[in-house]
């Protein structure tokens, strides 16, 4: 009996040590992200998350309207083909399969760019919420990436020269602020590689559809 009690006690002690050790090891990992951010960084993060949530709410509202349209069409025995066709246009425009018209900015750039700096420009526009982007007449899709070609930087297999035009559809003011801010990417490139940029807002822009076939060959839909 005493032996059993001793065994159980040892088991309990070992379990407690194990639990404490696990907790201690976990706490050695990078500290909790949020607690590690400065108030300034937290404010920026909150702003970003709030903006995304606002977009998600808008998107959800549109989807619910679409569901209501389908329900109404079904109740009235009407064809919902028109609703479906609008959805197709939306999906194509979103992903680059269809051209997009709207307002935004045009950035003219010239300099000794490398692929990383071109990709950084694309990324900066995405960070600023651009709906659609083109460099020259190359529509930027999810898989578009600037690489070093045989004699020039290429995007989707198409060379771009020392001078190129970036068209971005999005909030004209928001995109302009993001691209021209003090210490921002364009300013850094102006200083590091002596690039030159002009940024102008435009209320009537067109970003073309991609010329690439985006149909995957290895990836297949989950049934």
């Amino acid at each position: 009996m005493a032996g059993r009690v001793a065994q159980l006690s040892l088991f309990g002690v070992a379990l407690l040590i194990g639990a404490l050790l696990v907790g201690q090891l976990r706490s050695q990992a990078r500290p909790i992200e949020l607690a590690n951010l400065s108030p300034q960084e937290l404010s920026t993060l909150i702003e970003t998350l709030s903006a995304r949530n606002a977009e998600l709410r808008d998107g959800l509202a549109d989807l619910r309207d679409q569901v209501s349209d389908y329900e109404r069409a079904a109740a009235e025995g009407q064809s919902s083909l028109a609703i479906g066709q609008e959805d197709l246009l939306r999906v194509e425009a979103f992903g680059g399969l269809g051209a997009v018209e709207g307002q935004g900015i045009v950035v003219e750039g010239e300099g000794s760019f490398d692929p990383t700096s071109v990709n950084d420009i694309i990324q900066e526009l995405r960070n600023a919420g651009a709906d659609a982007i083109a460099i020259d007449d190359i529509r930027i899709t999810a898989s578009s990436v600037a690489v070093l070609g045989t004699s020039a930087i290429e995007i989707d297999g198409v060379p771009i020269g020392r001078a190129f035009t970036v068209t971005a559809i999005g909030s004209p003011g928001g995109l302009t602020t993001a691209m021209t801010r003090e210490g921002g990417l364009l300013q850094l490139l102006e200083q590091s590689i002596q690039a030159r940029f002009t940024v102008r807002e435009d209320r009537s822009l067109v970003v073309p559809a991609t010329r690439r076939d985006l149909t995957p060959t290895a990836a297949r839909p989950v049934e």
Binding site: G77, S79, L81, E92, F94, G95, P216
Partner: peptide, 27 residues
């Protein structure tokens, strides 16, 4: 709803195929 749309079946089928292909291509 798109799968059960009323109206011309061949038009609906074609539209649904186009939608499925577009969704697959763009993520």
């Amino acid at each position: 709803f798109q799968a059960q749309s009323a109206g011309s079946q061949s038009a609906t089928d074609r539209l649904n195929q186009d939608l499925a292909a577009a969704r697959l291509a763009v993520g």
